[in-house]
Design a protein around this nucleic acid. Structure first.
Lengths: 199, 199
DNA sequence: TCAACTCACATACATCTTGCATATGAATTC
DNA sequence: GAATTCATATGCAAGATGTATGTGAGTTGA
């Protein structure tokens, strides 16, 4: 029973999936709602009913990707016990994820341009939240200098995403990746009370 | 003589000015070429002749702002003799400039989304160039750790712009600004061979 | 079980936008 | 001073979004 709710949820999912594909392939402005909905086996009617407008669909798509990224990054971080190493792993995970064209186009470029600053997104930018958590603990344990948690987290996660854009846009991403990660780590080390000796 | 070239240059300037205003006010997608050109006392004909298409105008506008920003940042940096202080001043200048709505909307949001990654822009992102110069010298003089110049510059200037977006989006920009600047400095200090003692 | 109703989705339409093709007229040139 | 060039204006076609309205499957209540 409740066949309608079930159908509706399924259609929402189809539209988000189609949107994800279309936005990644053509960018937000270049994606045609007509084509997009047709690809999902529906019409624009379904889209406007479910998401209000084109931006609404983008918001839903961004939210989905954003959460998946946070989950993935936390999984990468969870492999370490040391808080500091975890933060680094999280950052590097972001950098690697943001190399995916889909993430770049949708989350890093069109997302901010169309929806505004990420920190204002309803999803609260899940990536940012987990970074904040780590930073707070690091400061409590006296490993990080007592800077403002909000600002530090914001700049750290921003640096990771920025590094990713840089890597992805470079002519030789594979060669650039390690350099970007190294610089990211160097900048993150600025927050440490005691810098690690070698390397 | 050459009244035509003169007139044309003048019209280009008018269109860029009108574009700057319209893009800042309505965003790239929301700006109507019809209104924009009318505001400049011309029609879309002039625009398409001079800039090819809408993106062409945006590129011209971005180029203009980009160069102005670089000039301003270098002026701020020039007030210091110490290279390290100069880099900080440059970064802070970027942060403050990027708080201007016009810069945010056009250079930081729509620019990358429409024209692609800034480091690929014809203007070569003047901001980045001057940062690179500073970093290179700092490494040569042994003040900075020997990291990759390209990557470090990219992340540093990215961090500055990111900090600006963060400040501007915050509910109380005036209160957030110093925190953002502090975190930026802390991250930049990660590149130093010897961290300054106090503060 | 069946009639009434709800509502998710489809369809039709009005409006606006971009970019191109063509026209025009002032400025330059021979 | 006539011919020509070319920067700009004008007319037009294709396509996009968003809204208003229609429709039919699914749900509900007696």
């Amino acid at each position: 029973m409740n066949k309608r709710l079930q159908q509706m949820a399924q259609n929402r999912e189809k539209l988000i999936e189609a949107g994800r594909d279309a936005f990644a392939r053509h960018g937000f402005a270049g994606a045609s709602m007509e084509e997009l909905t047709a690809a999902a086996g529906l019409t624009r009617g379904a889209l406007y009913h479910n998401f209000g407008d084109k931006r609404g669909l983008l918001a839903a798509v961004v939210h989905q990707i954003d959460e998946a990224m946070a989950t993935e990054a936390q999984a990468a971080a969870a492999r370490y016990d040391d808080l500091w190493l975890r933060l680094l792993a999280e950052g590097e995970a972001y950098i690697e994820m943001a190399m995916r064209p889909e993430v770049q186009r949708i989350v890093l470029l069109d997302g901010p341009a169309v929806l505004g600053d990420p920190s204002r997104w309803p999803s609260q930018n899940a990536c940012l939240q987990s970074t904040k958590q780590s930073v707070r603990q690091l400061i409590q344990e006296g490993i990080f200098r007592p800077v403002d948690v909000e600002a530090a987290s914001r700049l750290l996660s921003g640096a990771a995403l920025n590094a990713a854009l840089y890597v992805a846009a470079s002519s030789d991403p594979a060669a650039t990746l390690p350099k970007a990660i190294e610089s990211f780590r160097t900048m993150a080390e600025g927050f440490l009370v005691e810098r690690p000796g070698g390397e």
